[in-house]
């Protein structure tokens, strides 16, 4: 096997130091993605810094919001009473992802940092700019039915696979990180990147920065929410397209809306223009359909994923419909 060093961190600063000074080091939490990538030789860290013992697993009330520790397990978050009470959309999104076994291992921070599932990224013999910058994008002219319709570049058309992140971007979450230069807060929408010319960078985290928590502000989205995930089997599959929808209704009038899509871009795709188009409108099929049309502006399909141009808006309508009826 590839030899690597394994150290267990007991304090956040120790973990940050260990990774900051060694460019070949990686944090490991649940390892549900990293270990697979290491087995396949796609990621070959020389050092693993195990952060599972760090005290970052709490889910707690903060001023006007919820704080999820970066090491809180996906299953713990999905089943947490506070989460279900204040942010039910997040629980729905989490439960749509992976399998119970994986959710019992995967953490909040790790879920955000999972790599794309693009087949070309996973095959060392095929071109992939994300894995090997400059080698080309295999998917661009290849089998691209799972790929992006928004924000892609000619360097990379991969999508981010997380369901949880789709809900978090819709809910205006903030990512808390600690690093060699201190602590900072990153708006969730700015956390993941579009591929541009540097698809090897999935996020705006800097070297040695550790995610410590995610804050979600309280909002009115405690009832009319839905996470609609369309996949090729009933469970345990990545989304063809997914939509997180949250509505604040006054009678049948939409006071506020949140919408984001998964399976369509290199990052969880927030649909602010479509949200705006819903404000003040009645919660009807026609309003939802109009919002879906707004949402799809600028979408561009490749050879095998043109179906997403139709499935995308339909999924938005279905998510809004279900949220309104919830």
């Amino acid at each position: 096997m590839n030899q690597f060093q394994y150290v267990r961190a007991t304090k956040p600063q120790g973990a940050i130091d260990a990774v900051a000074k060694d460019p070949t080091a990686k944090f490991i939490a649940g390892g549900t993605n990293l270990v697979d990538l290491m087995k396949r030789g796609i990621m070959t860290p020389q050092k693993l810094v195990d952060i599972n013992r760090l005290p970052l697993a709490k889910i707690e009330r903060q001023d006007k919001g919820l704080r999820l520790g970066a090491l809180a397990l996906n299953s713990a978050v999905a089943n947490d009473a506070l989460v279900r009470q204040h942010q039910p959309l997040l629980a729905l999104a989490l439960n749509a992802g992976a399998s119970p076994q994986l959710r019992n291992m995967a953490t909040v921070g790790g879920n955000m940092l999972q790599r794309t599932r693009c087949s070309y990224f996973y095959d060392l013999t095929m071109p992939c700019n994300k894995r090997e910058p400059g080698s080309g994008c295999g998917a661009l002219e290849g089998i691209n039915r799972m790929h992006a319709i928004f924000g892609a570049s000619d360097k990379c058309i991969a999508v981010h696979p997380s369901d949880m992140s789709v809900a978090l971007v819709a809910l205006d979450a903030t990512v808390l990180v600690s690093g060699p230069k201190g602590d900072r807060r990153i708006a969730f929408a700015d956390f993941h990147r579009l591929p541009g010319d540097t698809p090897e960078k999935d996020t705006n985290l800097e070297a040695g920065e550790l995610i410590t928590a995610v804050d979600i502000p309280d909002g009115p989205f405690t009832k009319h929410v839905h996470y609609q995930k369309v996949r090729e089997r009933a469970s345990y599959a990545f989304a063809l397209v997914s939509t997180a929808a949250a509505l604040d209704l006054d009678g049948n009038t939409i006071k506020a809306a949140r919408l984001a899509m998964g399976g369509v871009a290199h990052k969880p795709w927030r649909l602010t223009a479509a949200e705006q188009s819903l404000v003040g409108q009645p919660a009807t099929e026609a309003s939802f359909r109009r919002a879906a049309e707004v949402a799809m502006q600028g979408a561009k399909a490749f050879k095998h994923n043109a179906y997403k141009l139709k499935l995308g808006p339909n999924t938005i309508v279905q998510a809004l419909r279900t949220a309104a009826a919830a």
Partner: peptide, 23 residues
């Protein structure tokens, strides 16, 4: 298969779907 490479792009059970219980 990606015919350009003559190589499968479905290489694991995440890409090649078989039914789960819920199906």
């Amino acid at each position: 298969i990606d015919d350009r490479f003559g190589r499968y792009v479905t290489k694991d059970l995440a890409d090649y779907h078989v039914p789960v219980h819920a199906d």
